[in-house]
Design a binder for these strands. Structure first.
Lengths: 340, 340
DNA sequence: AAGCCACACTTTAACGCTAAAGTAAACGCA
DNA sequence: TGCGTTTACTTTAGCGTTAAAGTGTGGCTT
């Protein structure tokens, strides 16, 4: 193994004190021209690289942030991480990546791990709120910055947040279907979490805004999985008069719904139009490209990074902020005009 | 901010030395029963958590590994990271995530950053070898473990590797098409990197094994992007006799090829069968589900993690190993029997 | 009863760095 | 000429932890 170059070594070889070397490297004013040059030359000669661990210990800043996401396999969260990474790495921060697997116990373990590692801040993403509120509060009180992405935690935890406008998601999707001339619009609801409830709320809002009467039987319980969508769609297909459009709580369930429709011998969008939410990658490569309401995950990540870096920076905002990411309608084939 | 609990504080409150506390927490033998209990009680009372940074400084181990991948948006690499994460986190290691954006300069910067942060080891993934060989060698000589995933770096860098069997990828894909009764099989080649070349090599091997004459004009230069596939396919469509099957160097280019085929008014697989490689997520949701030759990225990540943890562990292997991940054929719609 | 050893601790030093306080020499000025 | 100031450093201390060496007490041996 090669010998490790430390400031000590540089100082020794030049016959100066370690502090002098430190001052040169930190651009302090009180070092003479000649000495500075000698130190710099030696630094270059020996290929000195500062030891970030030692630095962190004295400065009490690791320049490292932790991210906890529920699932690494889900492109959704990965895109957020990509957004985070680009901002954070440009500012000289490292990202410690953790997956909670949707398990509150693992989440807790990861958060403790991040705390022990003295990260400067944490970005926490999750579909459902999972407790650990006590720990999160403690983190804040320890001076570790915290940003939550789309997490319905008790507002008990005071921190910055990046949230999606789920009501608007439901409203946009449903309004689009109405404008396409659809009359009997069903909704496949997600799991009983706040996101789904708000999307369902947006569905109701849109119908009301257009003076359409809400029929409770057209709102069926579904879920976020493809199979949930298939199951729910089967029930919707049993209604008379039949629905001619469906807003599914998310894209996988929308895909499941399409499969059920095809199985019943009907066509998308001719017989029934479909709109999903939260665009999956490749959604435009489907047999019938899926219209969806989505928002930029990259932005979500970037915004979270900005909020966090500001909070742990020299002049943090004095209040906690919530950034809302606006959703957008992405029109593709599955919501085309009805067959005459 | 809450006061931070250190060993110092625990020691002071109990009137013992810091070392005693350290020994209790590290389960050393030479601490009396009573003292041990008192320390443990205090630790629980104050909710003490060790400071990993300080620990790293003395132990010269950060229990942190770095991963450098070229692109976070590409599910391919993300799945590798997921595999890594599961192994690594179970063993108490943290993962510092970096994206090189395929840029050798950024890669170098990230590697230097990881070195400064004193990571115990690095996993490096990349499509094309990008130099930085000098740095990589230096890392090894500094005692930082290194595992390369599928990187065609000069064998100059001595380290453990996880590689895919690209020749077998090409062979499996092509043999499958032959067995499906296809006679004129084309190949859309990837970019001029070793992976593509080996896949093309596998294509040749399969043809030879089945006694089929290789026609050079059926091997067209393509690339790894969808547009590359489209462009290359257009050229293949110009050949007479026309090809009745195509093995594309990867899935995006296979999708591009399919689009070109449809645009020419032909059908997949009736007129032309398509096989891709390196399964993309959702490949089975395509208009015509794509047959592909793939391998487990999760395994790739897990194996890389195991190799690295072994190398930086107490009894590392004395030689550098290469683990080959075997590819598998995933048959879907795009390689069905020809029409008639 | 002197010597030895084991036990249960404490002291010292170190990891590599930075901040704060200290100091010696040169300089400016009345 | 003597005193304060500036310049260019060095010394000291500390971040939180662990390893190695040191210490004092009591019990056991012979």
């Amino acid at each position: 193994m090669a010998p490790i170059t430390t400031m000590k070594r540089i100082a020794a070889e030049l016959g100066v004190s370690i502090t002098t070397v430190s001052k040169v490297l930190n651009n302090r004013e009180d070092i003479g021209h000649a000495t500075r040059a000698r130190v710099l030359a030696k630094v270059a000669e020996l290929g000195y690289q500062p030891n970030a661990v030692a630095r962190s210990l004295t400065l009490r800043r690791t320049h490292t942030l932790g991210v906890v996401i529920p699932d690494l396999m889900h492109s959704f969260f990965v895109e957020i991480v990509a957004g985070l990474e680009s901002v954070v790495s440009a500012r000289g921060y490292g990202l410690l990546l953790c997956s909670s697997n949707e398990d509150p116990a693992k989440e807790r373990a990861e958060l403790e791990m991040l705390r022990q590692r003295q990260v400067d801040g944490i970005i926490l993403a999750s579909v459902n709120a999972t407790g650990n509120t006590d720990l999160l509060q403690r983190l804040e009180s320890l001076g570790i910055g915290l940003v939550m992405i789309d997490r319905d935690d008790h507002p008990a935890v005071r921190c910055d947040r990046v949230i999606t406008d789920d009501v608007e998601v439901g409203r946009l999707a449903t309004a689009h279907l109405i404008e396409q001339g659809r009359k009997a619009i069903g909704h496949i609801m997600g799991p009983p979490i706040a996101h789904s409830k708000r999307r369902a709320g947006g569905y109701r809002v849109a119908l009301k805004e257009h003076g359409v009467r809400i029929k409770p039987e057209r709102m069926v319980r579904g879920g976020f999985m493809e199979t949930d969508g298939t199951r729910a769609m089967k029930r919707l297909l049993g209604l008379r008069p039949r629905v001619d459009a469906v807003f599914a709580a998310n894209d996988p369930s929308a895909i499941g719904a399409m499969k059920a429709i095809w199985k019943a011998g009907l066509r998308v969008p001719d017989d029934i139009a479909i709109v999903g939410a939260g665009e999956i990658t490749l959604g435009d490569l489907l047999r019938v490209p899926l219209t969806t309401v989505s928002w930029s995950r990259d932005d979500q990540g970037r915004q979270a990074a900005e909020l966090l870096l500001d909070r742990i920076g020299p002049t943090p905002s004095d209040r906690f902020r919530s950034v809302v990411i606006p959703p957008q309608l992405i029109v593709r084939g599955s919501s085309g005009k009805p067959a005459l």
